[in-house]
Design a protein around this nucleic acid. Sequence first.
DNA 1: GTACCTTTGAAGCGC
DNA 2: GCGCTTCAAAGGTAC
Length: 628
Amino acid sequence: MPQLNGGGGDDLGANDEMISFKDEGEQEEKISENSSAERDLADVKSSLVNESETNQNSSSDSELTVLPLCCVQRSAVSLHLKAERRPPPRAETFRDKTRESLEEAAKRQDGGLFKSPPYPGYPFIMIPDLTSPYLSNGSLSPTARTYLQMKWPLLDVQAGSLQSRQALKDARSPSPAHIVSNKVPVVQHPHHVHPLTPLITYSNEHFTPGNPPPHLQTDVDPKTGIPRPPHPSDISPYYPLSPGTVGQIPHPLGWLVPQQGQPVYPITTGGFRHPYPTALTVNASMSRFPPHMVPPHHSLHTTGIPHPAIVTPNVKQESSHSDISTLNSSKHQDQKKEDEKKKPHIKKPLNAFMLYMKEMRAKVVAECTLKESAAINQILGRRWHALSREEQAKYYELARKERQLHMQLYPGWSARDNYAANQQGKKKKRKREKQQADGNEHREYFPNPCLSLPPITDLSAPKKCRARFGLDQQNNWCGPCRRKKKCIRYIQGEGSCVSPPSSDGSLLESPPSSPSMVPNSPPSKESKPQTEQMQPLSLTMKSGPLVSSSHHQHHHLSMAPPPPLALLDNSGAGKTHGPAHNGSLDPSDVSSSRPSGSAQPASACNSHSLLPSSAPTQPLSLVTKSID
DNA sequence: GTACCTTTGAAGCGC
DNA sequence: GCGCTTCAAAGGTAC
């Protein structure tokens, strides 16, 4: 697998470097700083595309191995499934089969459109940016290029050709499950899902209950009879359409035709920032959303199609009226309410993690039969950290594109609008207030990060930084504690546990440790990466190793280097007695060390005493329910 | 019916 | 600039 850092496994697992992807700029800086990765950003990003398939393989492989423990002992079915998932030494892995099937499907359905790479969703993000260096190296197959032209007619003057349309029609033929909808979690295998898949599936949900017949070039609205544009070709796959609005689509290529008489959002260039390099901005001539085609009011894009980020106008949006001079408050309020009703609620663009979650949720649900989003999100959070740079970069790139698209769609939109939108409910504030009302932030609802453990309610033990160091020694606090968030020391060192390996030998979704996390290193401002690094430790299963606090504590106290790869490969050992390495089976993690937060191992896993000694081994999926 | 939970990241706001 | 807060998705859960 191509690595940005020249194969430095420890770097790969370095959480702090993965954190660098939080910001594109930081990402670039971090990458450039990496001496072993001297490729410039262009090369790096180019590789992200060219090697995406390879990355996906690697990622999916890791995902195969990070099968949560919850799936292991859950049931015979899950065991069976797991046994199936467990790849043979190297015959024909599930991935291979999956890939083959996907390619076959691609060949059948789009004439090999996705042949290389088989990323049904990727075109969404990469297509509009054909000028992107990522695609400039000829990695785009002619078929895919044709597909792109059909998907984004503006990308090429040939887009409107019959050929393109015909191919588009073919492309709209019965699609793989992952294209249909990611709302059907169990149907599609996760490995068929590309990170961008959710972007495609969105619109499908709202556009077509099922796949349209191939012979239908354009859908016809059953109510209005107005032909719909070929979907999902022309619509941003990411943003769903609200039901009942498709009929407003004026023309199959309506977004190509300037809409007359439709008010448009004012282009408040002042609020339209361009945080991204020019090279990364979407070429107006190629984008589906040319700058002059600003979305009209009422959730309608110039296509006449509401942007999926727009939801029912129940939530108010910042009023853009300038005639606020009215002094009649009641009247003003009434008018405001009307405006609120009329105005849509433009949702924030999804960030990288959200995109990742959308894609992987179904997978986790399928694997763990989990339905509780909170638990799923925890797993996904760990998996997110466990992702390689390349894989994360894909999502960051996707999110960035999404933001760009969002900005172009709604130039005047600001996240502040949605801030104000929540003034009605103030739910979050209420939550915060509730937390603060407790006085002690650790007193608040603090579900045990182990998930398998009951909420930490033992306040008698001064475990957290505040209690340990006091207010006068906040320098010794961990970062989260300073930020009045979860104490990482408490989580990892005491209130929680070290992640046991997942059933298949992997340590669940725990990310590799950061080499910067030197044991006994004093807490520093950089504790945020540590926090994120340590969080995975908290995601553990209610399985044997966890129940056995002594065993667990042993590993936690040992602070021994991770086991050799051979040992790590021993998935069987990892299931029940695997070394409680803090996070990863990634052999690259060998060099990683215990985060500073674990510098106080003496009281490790105290909270395990809270566990009933007879606590049965349970999968993660049962944790949150069983606790209560 | 509504808020909460849970995750990460982006963005706004206040100091 | 830093820290805090809110919101984005999701669906079960609690009130």
